[in-house]
């Protein structure tokens, strides 16, 4: 306490007395709709080390891969190998497609799970959640604002990786038409650029399941690692299950089954049917999981 602590509240007394008379049920200037502005939540999350580390990793990964390709032996020309990895050095677009293909299934899922799974659980683990709720930030609003910010960070992560890969690949390998894996056909860069936007958009949507599951777990636990790990665990289990062919068409409803469907957008005849199914599955799971998260948080006793 300050040495001259006593007079301080006294000076505020008069002001408080005035306010109490006029304020009635709420403090002056308080409105539920103005609590926890998005800007504040962005700042609260931005300076965290895990945010910085994740973005640093996503921005550095394309360059690491560029260096790796420079060191590796040049892919044999004319060989039968027309896998997406063999074509990565054909140009910026090819490289970006390669980077997306190797990271979409796991790295981006981890990034999304991190941003969405950590958001509420970490507040609970720091005990700051109860002070926000007592401020008071209404529960639905707190969850909504946190969801928006977490999704925005996730979207930035999913977008920033292919864009940086495009930049790194173009710098390292030049700007060329994209060469399609398998057949080796080429598609003009100008044609494929809008499709590339579709690909990134699809990658975003396909991560919605991970995001919403992580968010639901985040609401239910005060261990951020548990929420992130749980969501990543779902990705792993789902990926394993989709390898079990005996499950037949049931696998179409696994959350990760359509994660690679965006490859169809980069073929000479783009086929969007798989992506449509993927979006449908993803949105379905996400909507229900998020609804559960809100329902659960409303009724929850916050004791952390």
């Amino acid at each position: 306490m300050s040495v001259n602590g006593a007079p301080v509240p006294a000076s505020g007394t008069r002001a408080a007395g005035v306010r109490t008379a006029a304020g009635g049920g709420t403090a002056r200037g308080y409105a539920p709709g103005r609590t926890l502005p998005l800007r504040v939540e962005f700042v609260r999350q931005f300076r965290r080390r895990r945010t910085m580390a994740m973005f640093g990793l996503l921005l550095a990964l394309p360059w690491v891969l560029v260096v790796a390709f420079q060191f590796g032996p040049a892919p044999g020309r004319g060989g039968g190998g027309l896998r997406i990895s063999d074509l990565a050095t054909q140009g910026g677009l090819n490289f970006a497609a390669f980077v997306l293909s190797v990271s979409a299934s796991f790295l981006l899922a981890v990034a999304v799970a991190l941003f969405c799974g950590d958001t509420v659980a970490s507040e609970a683990s720091w005990s700051s959640l109860r002070y926000l709720l007592a401020a008071p930030v209404p529960r639905d609003r707190l969850l909504r604002q946190k969801l928006i910010v977490a999704m925005a960070y996730s979207a930035t992560a999913v977008t920033v990786l292919p864009l940086m890969a495009l930049l790194a690949g173009t710098v390292a390998f030049g700007w060329h038409d994209i060469q399609v894996p398998g057949t080796g056909e080429t598609i003009p860069a100008a044609d494929v650029l809008p499709r590339f936007a579709v690909v990134v958009g699809y990658a975003l949507v396909s991560q919605l399941v991970v995001a919403s599951l992580a968010f639901l777990l985040s609401v239910g636990t005060d261990s951020p690692l548990g929420a992130v790990g749980g969501a990543v665990g779902l990705v792993i289990v789902s990926t394993i299950l989709q390898a079990v062919e005996a499950l037949g068409s049931v696998r179409e409803f696994l959350p990760t089954f359509w994660n690679t469907a965006w490859l169809d957008a980069l073929s000479p005849d783009p086929d969007y049917s798989g992506m449509i199914k993927g979006v449908a599955v993803s949105v379905t799971y996400a909507v229900i999981l998020v609804a559960f998260a809100f329902r659960r948080f409303r009724a929850k006793d916050v004791v952390s």
């Binding site: 109490t20 304020g23 049920g25 709420t26 403090a27 308080y30 539920p32 720091w126 005990s127 700051s128 959640l129 109860r130 002070y131 709720l133 007592a134 401020a135 008071p136 930030v137 209404p138 529960r139 609003r141």
Partner: peptide, 16 residues
């Protein structure tokens, strides 16, 4: 989340 909580200042069970 009752608005009247805006007239309450609290410190319960440790800092957050």
């Amino acid at each position: 989340g009752a608005p009247v909580l805006s007239r309450l200042g609290s410190f319960v069970e440790g800092p957050g």
